[in-house]
Amino acid sequence: MQTEVPMELSPAPRRLAPIILVPAGLWLAVFMVIPIAILLVFSLGHRDQLGRIVLGMSFANYLRFFCGPYLSSLARSLALAGGTTAVCLVLGFLCAMWLAFNVPRRRRQIYMTLLVAPLWTSFLLRIYAWISILRPTGLLSTALAHLGVCHPPVILYTPWAVLLGMVYNYLPYMVLPLYAALDKLDLRLLEAAADLGASPWQAFIKVTLPLSFRGIVAGVIMVFVPSLGDYVTPDLMGGAKTMFIGNLIQNQFLTVRDWAFGSAVSTILIVIVAGAIWLYLKYGEPTTTEVKPA
């Protein structure tokens, strides 16, 4: 069904390639490589009495992170990011399947636009909108009270509110890659599976899921990575009652003014995120070896 087309550049563009890469290379160096190098150097130093950074060569900050109460903030962040990703994956898959299989092609544009429309307004505004709905004297409580519910549960500032805010924020980033993967899926394969006696569930597990695997990996990464470092949503929806790793880093830079420890925690976070991206590169990117002739 598919054959490999060799992607060879003709000699002229190949000579130009280094020049074309200069802006991107500069961008990477200035905004990525140099800051990360600074972070690494700072993380080995310590804070003086006045909150200034003193460079050094010590791993004390890393030890402090792994031996203190700080480790549990990492565990909480991983659990929250994992939970957010899982809920987004289930909801996102349902939504993407509906878009790709049930909605007529000409109307998909409208739904896609509606899906990303919330992203046009500020993320903070959307969170504050949720707060005004969920707070004790907010819209939801008032509405429930009018309906005769005496003691409506207050959702705001519980872990569930945090999860709600996170899922709400990151769901579009899950739906888009899943939709892109499912849109390309050949529906005749599902028909074939049904003809050969597979139940809809078996067809989903054995055909739909494997064929959309790259979309799943891309969506998982796009949700997991930003939600791991998110500290604004937990702070606003969770009432700052829990410390996630993003809050810990923010505190070190703005409150304690211990840039060295903050840099060490940031470095640890970067290593975790880099691990997640490595997984993406390993499983998510198209590779020629997996394309089998039909």
Binding site: G68, P69, Y70, R76, A240, T242, N251, V256, D258
Partner: peptide, 14 residues
């Protein structure tokens, strides 16, 4: 002693 406060604050939040 600011480090002690920071540690206690983290423990409260966690």
């Amino acid at each position: 002693a600011i480090f002690l406060y920071d540690r206690l604050w983290t423990e409260l939040k966690c």
